[in-house]
Amino acid sequence: MHRFWSLLFAAVNMACLALLVVAYAYPGLGWWLPDSASTQANEIDSLFYLITGLCAFFFVATQGILIYSLWRFPSTAPGSPSPIHGHPGLEIGWTIAPLVGLLVITAASLPVWKEARYQGFPPPALEGTNPLPPEADQVILVTARQWDWHLKYATESLPAEGIRQWASVGNPSDLIIANELHVWKGAKVSLLLRTTDVIHSFFVPALRLKQDTLPGKTIPMRFEATVSNVRFDPAEGRVVPNETKASWEIACAELCGGNHFRMRGKLFVHPDRKSYDAWLDHSRRQTRSRSLTAMLPNASSSNQKEGALQ
């Protein structure tokens, strides 16, 4: 047992690699990437594979050296290994290698970042003349707070002063609901992220969308969903899952306080604009109703067993 630590390290490392292979080879286990449901998902996944590949290479290399050294020179063995001091070639080598790796990652990620973040939004200076982000089908303001997401849906044309003005004041007809992000397949969605208190992070794994919300800032993001998971059923007056049965979570990905773990929401992707409009119209009627009899008990529409988070 003199070589306990080297054996343990070797075993743990082998197990890690084996897990990686199993997770990749058997997607049914759900250990690999979540569903991907947006146009940018593939590019972000490619980035993930690139970074995982780079990390795996260095992981195997460094752990290999570590385990070999533990095995070869256990503390109980007589004598000591001869250390290397001041080897310029080695030092330059291990400075250049990560640098190259990081540059490769940066170069690969910049176009994806640009796509997700900087396209489709007018610069603040031009906003007054160009109120709607070009090509946006839907504008949604996401306001994070401890501990839920408030989503404001624009239901009519945005004010001429621009979207940031709309985010601050808005229209009386806007629909405000909590924790439910509704879009339709193929819609170019512009999100504005805000927070009323601390830093949160709006994370939708299925869309590969993750962005911190920072106090005092309004941060634009965009995405386009490619798969739908629900449709609106006018007869039942609620959203029902479609054949994919997929349930997509919105999570807060930045520790934001005691209830951070339950700061969750759901993503609903309707198959087409018609279904979305029906949902929007229904929800608006629900929340704008002035008569008790016309009200269904739920102000929000999709709060049903099927729609619940697991």
């Binding site: 707070r145 401890q146 501990w147 839920d148 408030h150 609901i177 909590a178 924790n179 439910e180 209830n259 339950r262 700061m263 969750r264 929401g265 759901k266 008990p297 739920n298 102000a299 929000s300 709060n303 049903q304 067993k305 729609g307 619940a308 988070l309």
Partner: peptide, 28 residues
């Protein structure tokens, strides 16, 4: 009951009470 349920579902906007609307109806 509906008043209490509304508060749980939608939270109290402007306070620290969050919305719990995505919990299953039964749990609410």
């Amino acid at each position: 009951r509906e008043d209490i349920l509304r508060t749980i579902r939608m939270g109290l906007h402007g306070t620290s009470m969050p919305a719990f609307g995505i919990l299953p109806t039964e749990e609410l």
